[in-house]
């Protein structure tokens, strides 16, 4: 298993994908944080002061924007293998396919965790000096910021696993990326405003991730922190399971 993990890790580190996507993830996280601070007090942002716990949580949770790149990196890591048949030698060397997919998922979650750490670190690096320059003190524990940061990290990591699952389901790289982005940015927000089904919104992956960081869309009540975290973990496990199931059953090209 350790050889397999090393092999899967080398698949990641021997192309430029991982750091290109990492830069994108960091840029999105930074953008999220900066826009939160910069628009504070403007008329389209509730003019709660910067030292308010809600405002501070909103700022720190913006680091989660980087999850977009972790889900895409998860998709690409697996669909590239379908496209170039690079998993075939792996399956020849380890015919117990469950182990191969487990190694893939572990490495994908490690990549997701790395992105999460980087995104959170960058948001802290931006926020702390900025707020202290404005004379605002940061309430790490009293304002619940640590929980928000751990939540963002967790969301970013889990979405890498979700990406691998989606990639196994859809196989086509372009289709999987487009479908995922369309789902997260069009379908899920639509569900949150359609009367009958909007109650289900809070259980969906995007909203569950939102619950973890306390960001709501369209005033729908989200799950609590812990419920959201468990729900998202459930989604991650579901996609991991589907990825495993299909890989074990399908013929390898």
């Amino acid at each position: 298993m350790s050889g397999l993990l090393r092999s899967e890790a080398r698949k990641v580190t021997t192309t430029k994908l991982w750091w290109g996507m990492l830069l994108g993830s960091i840029a999105f996280a930074a953008l999220g944080v900066v826009s939160q601070i910069a628009t504070n007090g403007l008329k389209n942002n509730p003019a709660l002061p910067l030292n308010d716990p809600v405002t501070q949580r909103a700022i720190f949770s913006s680091a989660v924007s980087g999850y977009l790149f972790s889900v895409v990196v998860g998709i690409i890591l697996i669909t590239t293998e379908f496209r170039h048949f690079t998993s075939r030698p792996t399956f020849l060397l380890e015919p117990r396919r469950g182990r191969v997919i487990a190694a893939k998922l572990l490495v994908a979650s490690a990549v997701g965790l790395l992105y999460g750490f980087a995104d959170v670190a960058v948001s802290v690096a931006i926020t702390v000096p900025w707020l202290s320059a404005k004379g605002v003190s940061v309430g790490w524990l009293s304002n619940g910021l640590v929980i928000v940061m751990v939540g963002a990290l967790f969301v970013i990591a889990i979405f890498a696993v979700v990406g691998v699952g989606v990639g196994v389901l859809m196989r086509s790289q372009v289709a999987a990326v487009i479908a995922t982005l369309a789902y997260l940015f069009v379908v899920e927000p639509l569900i949150s405003v359609i009367p009958v089904i909007k109650e289900a919104y809070r259980y969906l992956p995007g909203a569950a991730g939102g619950a973890l960081t306390g960001v709501s869309r369209n005033q729908v009540t989200l799950l609590s922190n812990w419920q959201g975290g468990l729900m998202l973990l459930g989604w991650g496990l579901l996609f991991a399971f589907l990825g495993w199931l299909l890989t074990v059953r399908r013929d390898i090209a």
Binding site: S7, T80, H84, L93
Partner: peptide, 18 residues
């Protein structure tokens, strides 16, 4: 079964590990 951007040596090291 090669990733086009990988070098021959990197390709082999991936499977050497496995």
């Amino acid at each position: 079964s090669f990733h086009p951007a990988r070098s021959a040596r990197d390709h082999l090291r991936i499977y050497a590990a496995a």
